[in-house]
Design a protein around this nucleic acid. Structure first.
Lengths: 344, 344
DNA sequence: CTGAAAGCGCTTACAG
DNA sequence: CTGAAAGCGCTTACAG
């Protein structure tokens, strides 16, 4: 490979100083237009590109954001939650639009997130993405906070956690699910998903669901609830237990689409029909949701907007600007897994 | 944020020179063990991390790989091909294991891939991933080659393109599909997918399919073929045309799972049953494949191995080491979309 | 509008 | 085994 051109080479060819080249390349207005043009022309000709390492070192700024995906310790091979994958797509796009590079990694051996990124100056800030047990990583979040790391996190609207969380209005999402199921005439409800402090997002969805049902005069005590983390297996197991219990149920709201898929399989394995015997509603609207049998009605989170907002807010944090908004509104996507006509 | 510690701070506290600190931190064997330990202890205590920008600048090496995803110009919002998403997962893991950072981006405004990464010293090499029209980007690949960029590319085994391509044995994959369909007793076959120079991977799959059928005495001229790029829509359209043509067919091999999904929808919309009336076979084994109705039999590409190999080979290129292997063997995944018993 | 100079924080010959 | 010194390629006060 030919020697890389440096700003000195350009300076020599343009007959100006290296400082001027540097200014010209960044389109500093204080440089004479002609000089600027000449410098740009030569740069193009030499195929010159600013050395990011040098400029980052000098500026003490990397124009790079890090994305850290952390999930429950999956035995490697297993699939990444599809919801995060779509998020990754939109984050990548948002970064590109803003001239930021994106460093991607999974939760590593290291448990000091701060150390790995911002400290090494590889990134100006960190985007955290994952469905872990909230209580497990709260400590790490606090450490990041203490270290004054710039970071932003997709998650629940937990109290005491201000600007750095970006989230869906999960409670509203739960409410939408409840209202839809009610409108279709269902009477006996269950929620499948962890509804506890360790899973604040799921818990909010459950609470919103209860809100809707209570408005319709259904007592919260009448709503069945079975725990499940966000996997098919967990959903299948939970619905198995629910069905075994013999308690009547005609509509199940699942805390995530992955759970819903497991729930549907569990129901069908018992020879029951969806939605005729039991309606199933999901949350997320992952791509698979439209291919299940029957297609899954669900609450959609706008990953495109979410990614935008994550990047936008992180950049604001990095630049010490105030954050404007950190919540996105969910939308219901009606397919056929909950029935279509009223059961009267 | 407190001032970041530098190697000079450590040197001062350890009572040694900064050069020694630098050596000690990289565990240079020429540094006295005691000195080394002392330095490490202080570093840990100060929460010190080597500044990557400075060390990269000095070493002229970034320990970073860039992943460039390019697809047919999708109108942004649309989904990233799930196959690449799983690939991304495994690439991320492979990089982490080798101490490499991973910069991710989509094909950008810029069409000079080389310029964007290696030239700016942000990455030591580039991983190219995408199903575009091969002829469209051949020129770019040649440019990369001319610039002596270090890169590796997931794709077809095109002639004249040596080490930098890593691929599935697509021809063998096509053969597996053909043999499976034959074994189930199917007699009249179609292939849906672009089978031309612009899509060498699809073409290889088609060729392998033909190989198997020819071995069974079926003339290539008897094999129907309809073009389709790798999307549901294209699959649906192609099968529509196939069905319209009135030509009898009882088994369709699709060049990708995405196509297969569209094909299945198209078949079902005509009131036909899968696999009873027509068997459908895919290629890729994307996550959705197991959720379709009926579950899709397909040829699996081992994305985990593929990601490994991509990273491994790129690193070899960067270090001027010879490449050992660049092909992975596909595996058949039998579900129910092709039928189970012999049709006799 | 332009130039000379310092310095970002490292790594690595070179010398001992 | 250790230290003094140079230098990676930039950006940015400072001075004119």
């Amino acid at each position: 490979m030919k020697e890389k051109a440096t700003s000195f080479d350009i300076a020599y060819l343009a007959g100006v100083s290296q400082s001027t080249v540097s200014r010209a390349l960044r389109n500093s207005p204080q440089v004479n237009k002609e000089t600027r043009d000449k410098v740009h022309a030569i740069a193009r000709q030499l195929n010159y590109k600013v050395d990011k390492n040098a400029s980052n070192l000098r500026k003490q700024r990397s124009s790079t954001l890090a994305l850290l995906l952390f999930e429950d310790p999956t035995t490697d091979e297993s699939l990444i939650n599809p919801f995060f994958l779509s998020m990754l797509g939109s984050i990548t796009r948002a970064c590109a639009q803003r001239g930021q590079d994106l460093l991607v990694s999974f939760q590593q051996l290291s448990d000091d997130w701060h150390a790995d990124y911002e400290d090494t100056k590889k990134a100006d800030g960190i985007i955290l993405l994952g469905y872990g047990d909230y209580e497990d990583y709260e400590e790490k979040l606090n450490k990041l906070l203490a270290q004054e790391t710039h970071f932003v996190c997709w998650g629940a609207d937990v109290e005491g956690h201000p600007d750095f969380t970006i989230r869906s209005n999960n409670r509203q999402g739960g409410r939408l699910a409840g209202e839809h199921l009610l409108a279709l005439g269902h009477k006996r409800f269950a929620f499948i998903g962890n509804a506890s402090a360790g899973s604040p997002e799921f818990n909010q969805r459950f609470l919103g669901f209860c809100d809707a049902l209570q408005d319709a005069g259904i007592d919260r005590a009448a709503i069945l609830q079975y725990n499940a983390i966000s996997t098919e297996q967990a959903g299948q197991l939970a619905v198995h237990n629910l069905l075994e219990s013999g308690q009547p149920v005609d509509a199940i709201f699942c805390a995530s689409d992955l759970i819903a898929i497991g729930v549907m399989q569990g129901i069908q394995q018992q020879g029951l029909r969806i939605p005729d015997n039991i309606a199933v509603m999901g949350f997320d609207d992952i791509p698979v949701a439209s291919y299940t049998t029957p297609p899954l009605s669900t609450i959609q989170q706008d990953t495109s907007l979410a990614g935008e907002m994550l990047v936008e807010n992180l950049l604001r944090l990095v630049n010490n600007q105030p954050i404007e908004t950190n919540q996105i509104e969910p939308k219901i996507v009606i397919r056929t897994s909950c029935g279509t006509a009223s059961k009267g």
